[in-house]
Design a protein around this nucleic acid. Structure first.
Lengths: 330, 330
DNA sequence: GTGAAAGCGCTAACAC
DNA sequence: GTGTTAGCGCTTTCAC
């Protein structure tokens, strides 16, 4: 296997000095036209490809690469975030290294180190559910970190989250104002987004001067199966007049329970999903825009990279939207 | 912003030679225990992080990075491929750079160059629908390339595809043997996978000694809307006894048409989707396993990287499975 | 406008 | 077992 041609080879071939080739490749304008043409020809002839890794070890130069650490790339929510970030970054000449932490702190920490070793210019991070080492223990200086989807336990960090609380509140307000008591069906409150959504649920009730009824809140729906069972139980008590399903699994579990029991309650779910428009009645949801979150995170990264690093941290809460399709009615 | 500590700093701090630190960092075993401890202490104290970019410019060393070029990371099919590849690669100490070509040849070519410049050790590629430069025009040597989802116009290349043809044939055979004429609803046959699925459809009919009826094949369903319209038209002619929907969009279009016309035909779709088990009757599909494809592609990459490069190319066709849920019946 | 020489952070000979 | 030296491919002073 022949060696890759280097700048020296190009310079020799073109009969110019190494530095002139470097200038040419970097788009400098002060180059003699004839030389430029000779260099261009040599590059094509040799099939020269620049070694960006070698360039990036020089002080002031960077890898033009950004890391993205999410829970699971196969999850459409996170892959949409990735896509959003990717589109903004490639536009700016950066490439995206993606990695999945599977919500595990140790895996997460290992991947962070791996990313840093590869000299990424910045990383965008979904803090894992089971936390690893604290961020403050990571030696400065390190590339800028932008948190997404959930805030990290770190002051003054750039953070992009969705308005989980506001979205939930809006949905529950609507359900409560037109129906009886609203049940909360979701996962553990130790999960940040779930807790926010629960707080929104409480907000909506409090705003009407009501207290949440603990027996109407089920936070044990860790799987679709558990959500289904919880929904069945809920239907059988007959105590709820409507259901707020705090994530996709809960929504689908509730739908299955409706089908099984052959009854249904007014329902709004959190997070949109493909099947929502296919079932009858179509499912109303609180919808967030993960791709926009990814794009914004990438923009914050670029801004950090451009500015001299000490602009104040941005904490952005992206609005959600209530998409009404019919399931919120009787 | 202070400079990052280098190996020299660690060596100075630990009072040993640079090379000893290098050995330690690379896990060499011939190091005095006391020195190892001093080095370890210095590393922690300084918060030293190794610069892999600098290491990788040495001959024989690599970036431990693989590129993945797909159509669109936000598409669950491709993000599953990415996840599969990622899981195998991180296991082996590699990181994955993902990029979306959006099916555009020029974008694709630009990203390939970008990846090569960053010295990726290999790339996994979904050839874009609108082709760019030919692969044979890319100067050798270059990192190994593994094609996935569709074959490239390049002889002797490692390739991983699903058994589109066989899966389609199996589905159509089942439909045809229990119902009347089977209609084909899909996208343009200029798309590789679509063509394969159509060939499978034809295979199934030919095997029974029948000729495909051109008026029963619709290959203009480029969008869900078009699939819907085509399905409506199909239902109104009353000529089809069953429908084979050759991708998700076609399947969903058909389902909407059923709902709108309040009739339904036996149906099998190609590719599984979230909503398939939620509608009634649940939708039967030919299912492929994109994550397994991604994993296999990554394994082929690792094998190429390990072997001396001249093992014969692998052309792997992954089986599909027919998942029967009820929609294939009357 | 162009070139020679130095050095980025690291690893591989090759001594000691 | 450990240190010294050279050099990977590139960019950057600083002369010319």
């Amino acid at each position: 296997m022949a060696r890759n041609p280097t700048m020296i080879d190009v310079a020799t071939e073109a009969g110019v000095a190494l530095k002139t080739v470097s200038r040419y490749v970097n788009g400098a304008d002060n180059i003699n036209d004839a030389m430029a043409a000779r260099i261009a020809a040599a590059i094509t002839k040799l099939g020269y490809r620049r070694n960006l890794a070698a360039a990036s070890i020089r002080p002031g130069w960077t890898s033009k690469t950004v890391g993205l650490l999410i829970s699971d790339l196969a999850n459409p929510y996170y892959s949409s975030i990735a896509r959003g970030a990717e589109s903004v970054l490639t536009e700016a000449g950066y490439l995206l290294i993606t990695a999945s932490s599977e919500e595990d702190g140790a895996t997460h920490d290992r991947l962070v180190d791996s990313l840093f070793e590869r000299q990424v210019d910045a990383i965008i991070v979904v803090p894992p559910r089971s936390p690893g080492r604290s961020w403050s223990s990571v030696r400065e200086p390190h590339p800028p970190v932008v948190f997404i989807d959930r805030p990290a336990a770190l002051d003054g960090a750039d953070t992009i989250v969705a308005d989980n609380r506001g979205g939930a509140r809006e949905a529950v307000e609507l359900l409560r104002s037109t129906h009886g008591d609203v049940a909360f069906l979701g996962d553990s409150l130790s999960i940040y987004t779930m807790q926010e959504r629960y707080l929104g649920y409480v907000d909506a009730l409090r705003a009407r001067g009501e207290q949440p009824d603990p027996t109407l809140a089920n936070t044990g729906a860790h799987s679709e199966e558990q959500a289904y069972a919880a929904a069945i139980a809920l239907l059988q008590t007959g105590r709820a007049g409507a259901i707020f399903a705090a994530n996709n699994r809960a929504t689908i579990g509730a739908l299955r329970a409706f089908a099984h029991e052959d009854v249904r309650l007014p329902l709004i779910g959190f997070d949109d999903f493909e099947a929502a428009t296919l079932v009858r009645p179509a499912v109303s949801v609180v919808s967030q825009d993960p791709q926009a979150m990814g794009r914004l995170a990438a923009e914050v990264v670029l801004q950090r990279l451009a500015r001299e690093a000490t602009t104040p941290a941005r904490f952005e809460v992206l609005p959600t939207s209530l998409v009404l399709r019919g399931s919120e009615l009787d």
